[in-house]
Design a protein around this nucleic acid. Sequence first.
DNA 1: CCGAATCCAGACTGATACTG
DNA 2: CAGTATCAGTCTGGATTCGG
Lengths: 126, 126
Amino acid sequence: MPPIIHGSSEACQAVNSILSRVGDKWTVLVVELLGQGPLRFNELRRLIGGISQKMLTTTLRGLERDGFVTRTVFPTIPPRVDYELTDLGRDLLVPVHALGEWARLNTGRVAKARVSFDLKQKDEAA
Amino acid sequence: MPPIIHGSSEACQAVNSILSRVGDKWTVLVVELLGQGPLRFNELRRLIGGISQKMLTTTLRGLERDGFVTRTVFPTIPPRVDYELTDLGRDLLVPVHALGEWARLNTGRVAKARVSFDLKQKDEAA
DNA sequence: CCGAATCCAGACTGATACTG
DNA sequence: CAGTATCAGTCTGGATTCGG
């Protein structure tokens, strides 16, 4: 999953690496949910609603690998696995929330731009 | 390109929509470059280095559609096209820079987590 | 209950060639 | 110079099935 930028500084690669993780389909949602406290696998699954086990597993593994969440297994019957944000994960939440807040505030502007752009395209086609 | 989140509020969809644009391979790089002033197509191409014409076009069209950049065509020979950030684009740069700054500061932590994770994986395989 | 493994369709990326 | 068109390879996400 490492997008490599050739003509650019290493700092940019670092940024891109973070953005790639943050920008994928489920990561932010999972991180935000875990931000309110630890959750079990199927609790997450239910809360998200439209995610497959595979994608949830993949997402959680990625987050675990990058040190954003911990995975705790209780070897009971039935088994139980808790996921929880690390300090690093909670740290990440700060700038992510800022971007999220920006998105919430500016959805209207973006939506308007899209409509106007699409309209112009259609006109040119005619 | 609309990732749909089922079990979640509309606000989350909005956030996700922005993050999907921001998280793709070239968008941030392009936006940051344009943040320093308008650029022509091939100037961008050269500055980025590893991008194909097609991807640069696609990225710029997406940014234009969302209202983050303007596209100005000079019908001269040879033709000339300038790309420039809009107010909305410059606005977006603020939270994006915050996230970028976080990434720069925390690359080490993430890298360390990855190494330790991969090591643990390898041990378990043995 | 948690999750690994497999298979598959569709989206995304990119190299190449061509156009105004 | 600034694209568009086409085609091939890769990657992603999801359904299904199986295991601990």
